[in-house]
């Protein structure tokens, strides 16, 4: 059974690597979590981003956060990716599977998956 003592151990372990963990936050992944996003399936998309960023050892440069309604409800779940010095990328109609691919190809290897972007859906 998980205990609060375990949390104490997590704290001690993490304090030792606090310096290492200080992310530079180069890339920001923002998931729309308003009613429209949630109803369309944003929750598993967000949780996949959180897990995969950790699995791919990207937590130093990538932060995952939530926002409200972006205003394009028909394209939800919407994920925006902000990277310093680059144009914002907007991924639409996301799923957990797509999120996994975005982490691997875009966040890790720097290749935008254009077929998932809003430009591809509008065309």
């Amino acid at each position: 059974m998980k205990s609060l003592a375990e949390l104490q151990a997590i704290k001690e372990k993490m304090q030792n690597k606090v310096v290492l963990r200080e992310g530079t936050g180069d890339i920001r992944v923002v998931v729309g979590m308003a009613t429209c996003g949630i109803a369309a399936g944003a929750r598993p998309v967000l949780n996949t981003f959180v897990e995969e960023v950790q699995n791919q050892n990207l937590s130093k440069k990538v932060t995952v956060s939530q926002t409200g309604c972006i205003g394009i409800c028909q394209y939800e779940p919407v994920v925006e990716i902000f990277e310093a010095g680059k144009e914002k990328v907007t991924y639409v109609k996301m799923t957990a599977e797509k999120a996994k691919k975005v982490v691997e190809q875009h966040l890790k290897n720097g290749r935008v998956i254009s077929e998932y972007t809003i430009a591809a859906h509008k065309a």
């Binding site: 059974m1 998980k2 609060l4 375990e6 949390l7 104490q8 997590i10 704290k11 372990k13 993490m14 304090q15 606090v18 963990r21 959180v50 950790q54 937590s59």
Partner: peptide, 28 residues
Amino acid sequence: EELRKILGKDIPLNSFEVITWIKDFLTE
């Protein structure tokens, strides 16, 4: 609030390790 007391100020509740603990704790 109870978790925060144990973790102190330096470790945010949304650290991956803490989030994973919360998820496992509730599931169990």
